[in-house]
Design a protein around this nucleic acid. Structure first.
Length: 135
DNA sequence: GCCAACGTTGGC
DNA sequence: GCCAACGTTGGC
């Protein structure tokens, strides 16, 4: 089981919209590092959903329901998507400020490499954020 | 709206 | 294959 975090601007694709859709393909990744993470996702892996820009908070958990395949929004074979389904919403969104302030999360890619839109998480980091979201 | 960080592109 | 220029992302 692997863990990841994906970012979305709420104005573009919000957690709420995702829950209304019940399922989505994660398109628009145009960065090789992020793409490699998409390729590492296996069915059943869990993915934190982060709102960038407006909320700057992790708002819920999704899971991988279909492994990577050609991005249907481009002809370029470099780019892939995965299918995700919402699992649950956090009781309380975990803000970037809280993550930055947490000792156990100081090395998380979200903080260290702010511009990356899809990133792997260590199990401990994933668990920690979940715990904070359910406080 | 500014700017820092950083990935990508293209000239040499 | 190096590196400067440029574009994009995202926090503030």
């Amino acid at each position: 089981m692997n863990y990841f975090l994906v970012k979305s601007e709420p104005a573009k694709y919000s957690w709420q919209k995702f829950n209304e859709d019940k399922r989505t393909f994660w398109d628009g990744v145009r960065n090789y590092q992020a793409r490699n993470s998409l390729k590492d996702m296996k069915k059943g892996d869990l993915v934190l959903f982060y709102h960038s820009n407006e909320d700057k908070a992790v708002v819920g958990i999704a899971k991988v329901v279909k492994e990577f395949y050609q991005d249907p929004t481009t002809e370029d074979p470099n780019w892939v998507v995965v299918d995700l389904e919402p699992v649950e919403s956090f009781k309380k969104p975990v803000t970037l400020a809280e993550i930055k302030a947490d000792k156990q999360l100081e090395n998380i890619s979200l903080v260290k490499q702010g511009r990356l839109s899809v990133m792997p998480l260590k199990a401990a980091e994933f668990d920690r954020i979940i715990a904070m979201g359910n406080d």
